[in-house]
Structures are given as structure tokens and as C-alpha cells.
Amino acid sequence: MSSFPPQVPPVRRDLPTDPYTTIALHPHTPEHLRRVGEWLMYGANVGDPAAYRLPSYEQAKLSAL
């Protein structure tokens, strides 16, 4: 009987991706570039960071230990 805990089987990983399959080989259309630009401009939350909240009593109590 072993004194070590049981081991889990190894994780099966996907095969490596070829870099040439992940880039666009064809030039983008102006319509596509416009849609991407709109998505980046209006979809990003860059100028509106989350409001700062003081830590709760429980969080402050834990950090003081």
C-alpha cells in the first residue's frame, strides 16, 4: 500500500496550431475594417473604468491579519 495520494491521469492537450492558419491571408474590405473600427470604438469600455469601492468590513478584517 502506497503512502502517496492517487495521481490523476495526464491532461490531453490539442495539437499545436500552425501560425499560418490563424492570420488573414486576404486583404480586408473597407466594410469589414469599418465594422471592426466601430466595434473597437463603441464596444470597448476604455473610458469608463469600474467605480472604486472601499473594501467591506470582512475584507478589511482579513487583510489586517
Rank of each mutant, 00 (worst) to 15 (best):
R34G: 14
M41H: 14
T22F: 06
F4H: 05
T21W: 03
K61P: 00
R13G: 05
R12E: 14
A24I: 10
K61F: 03
P16H: 05
E31N: 11
Y52I: 05
I23G: 00
V46I: 06
T22Q: 15
T22C: 06
A51P: 04
Y52F: 09
D14H: 06
N45L: 08
P55N: 14
P30F: 07
L62E: 11
L25E: 00
V8T: 05
I23S: 04
Y20S: 06
V46G: 12
L54I: 11
S63N: 07
M1H: 01
M1G: 03
R13E: 01
K61D: 06
E31T: 07
R35G: 09
Q7K: 10
A60I: 03
A51D: 01
S2Q: 11
F4I: 01
M41Q: 11
A64H: 06
Q59G: 04
H32E: 05
P5A: 08
L25G: 11
E31L: 10
D18G: 08
S56V: 03
A64C: 09
P6I: 04
S63K: 04
V36R: 11
G37Y: 15
L65T: 14
S3Q: 13
G37P: 00
T29W: 13
H26C: 10
M1K: 03
D18L: 09
Q7F: 01
P30K: 12
L62I: 07
T29S: 14
I23T: 02
P49I: 05
N45Q: 13
D48A: 13
E38K: 01
T21S: 01
S63L: 08
L33Q: 04
E38H: 10
L54Q: 12
V36D: 00
